[in-house]
Amino acid sequence: MLPAAEALKTELEQLLPGVSVTLEGTALAIAAKDLLAVSRCLKDTDRFAMDYLSNVTAVDYPTEQRIQMVYHLYSMSQRHGPLTLLVNVDRAQPELESVTPLWRSAEFQEREVYDLFGVRFQGHPDLRRILMWDGFEGHPMRRDYVVEDQDNAPEPVR
């Protein structure tokens, strides 16, 4: 069984000196620089065995100038989870280490986050737009993205 959030926090901080984990409800918030170390520890430590990264997504907070990455981890072998990892990245310069080398399931999802939020993932094998076309400008899932109004588009010239 997965330890409770507080126990998990202390355990992680013991295993990884120099890493600080803060609790947000039951989710663990970590600094962007620690993401790979924490992920590797969660995946490779037998107690956690987080071999299944279910969901990777981002939440945009324009007023706080940050984009929050959200990772939902489960363990298929131990059948426990979820463990939610939260990582804040700077909204103006969103860059983060990719977790694709650890979990292949992040491959398309990180591409999607890059496409829709504009977070650049270092070490991603193939970081391209995935849902929007190449050459599309802007990142539509950001809160301040203005949706083009199709109903009020100018009349075509006949």
Binding site: D51, Y52, L53, S54, M76, L102, W103, R104, S105, E107
Partner: peptide
């Protein structure tokens, strides 16, 4: 192993 890692 690939199936697990790729989140299938």
């Amino acid at each position: 192993p690939l199936a697990v890692s790729a989140g299938i």
